[in-house]
Each structure stands twice: as structure tokens, then as C-alpha cells.
Amino acid sequence: MVEHYLTAASSYATDIDNLIWLVTIIVMPWFFLVQGILFYFLFKFKKKDGQKAQYITGEEAHQMRWVSVPHILVLLCDIVLIFGAIRVWVDIKQDMPTPDATVRIIAQQWAWTFVHPGPDNKIDTDDDIWTVDELHLENGQTYQYKLESRDVMHSFSVPVFRLKQDALPGRVISGWFKPIKEGNWSIQCAEMCGIGHGLMPARVIIESAAAHAAWISAHGPGKLAAATPAASAPAPQTAPAPQAP
């Protein structure tokens, strides 16, 4: 159902959605039950003429049950939630699948720089492809990302991936994603980073193997990409024009 409103474009997006559902299904009945009891008591014990307020110590067994029974039930629900959450956490944050490629993501006030591997499929080499505000990925490939910040805290947020990872100055944070759906989706900064925080959108472009290979070959070794202004355009972008270093 979440996917109806927000596309799931990474291999683990559905796991996150299911976890949200699990939390919702368990918490929502409790919410309505507690609110119902609260309002029931509010009306049942409202002010009545000739009746003084009572102080209840809660030491009687039938009174203590109002606390102890829900307490135990909530703890049981917590155990279910913790098991569900840990499973997703381990799969997404602890396990690092063998990546097909690595991309470097550099945040700054107020733009994103992406370093893609060139034809040698390795980053930090001469044929790297640099873009601004435009991340190109091949559909179905597992990517490791190395996230860093040039200045202050940012947060790399890709809603269709259900991914949000803080970027901290001085640290390189690794993670992974596997795009599973071709398209052109938004990237946001999800950490207040200054006056231009709301103005640093970027795009992730997930393309077929052939289209991605064509994009890479359009940026031959030694060339540096001057990104096209993708962030402001909702439609898929054409490949950035190559530019001499």
C-alpha cells in the first residue's frame, strides 16, 4: 500500500514498508484502546453533585491489574517489534552484500557531488565520472556508497530507496543499495544544513544496462562531467555534456 503512494525502487524498500506496517498494525489498536478507555473514564467519573474526589492509591489487586496487565501485553508487543526491526536492521545496515560497483557521494552546502566509476568500474581512478546533483545507477546492480560531507551535517535521503543516511564532516560512511526500478527520482537533504537546505534537491537516474553503458562511454577516460541542471527538472535528463578537465 505504501508503494501505491511512493515507488519502491530499491531491493530493501519493501522490507522497510513492511516494518512500518508491522509497527502500525501493533500500535494502532493500542492507541484506539487507550484513547477509548481514557474518554470512557473521563465521562464515567466526571464531576457529580455531592460527590467528593477520591484519592486512589492503586494498591488493591483489582486496581493494580489496570497497570500490570497492559504493561505485560505492551512488553510482548515490544518483543515482536524488536525482532522485526532487528531483522531489517541487520539485512540493511549490518550486512554489506558484495557490491558490483562503488559510488562516492559528497554533500556540501548546498549541492551533491557524485563520483561514479568509469569504464574500469573503480572509483578514485582517472576515469571517474563526476556529476553535480545527478546520480546515475544501473538497474539491478548492487552499489556500495561512500558518503561524506565537505562542511556541515547533511543527510542523504532517497525516498524511493527508503534510505536516509546522515553525512558527517570528517567521516566516510559506507552503506549499500540495489536499485530495482528504472526511472528518475528525487534525492533530498534530510538534515537542516543552513539557509539553502531546502534548495539542494538532486536526482537519481536508474537506467538499463545498455543506457548506463552508453552514459559511461559518453564520459570517456579523463573527462569530467559538467552536470546538466537535473535537480530542477522533473523529466529524465539527457546525459551531461563532457567537459575538459
Partner: peptide
């Protein structure tokens, strides 16, 4: 800056900071 003719080169760090302002 708004169109991306300036402020989209990966080595133009101050320009990249200026671009979102023009886009606003």
C-alpha cells in the same frame, strides 16, 4: 546559476552553493 550554466561544475564549490539560491 538557475539554468546550470554556472554552479554545476564539481570543482566550483562556492558556485554550487550559489546555484540553489538562484533556483529559489
Amino acid at each position: 546559476f538557475r539554468s546550470g550554466e554556472r554552479g554545476t561544475h564539481p570543482e566550483d564549490l562556492p558556485g554550487m552553493g550559489m546555484r540553489p539560491m538562484a533556483m529559489s
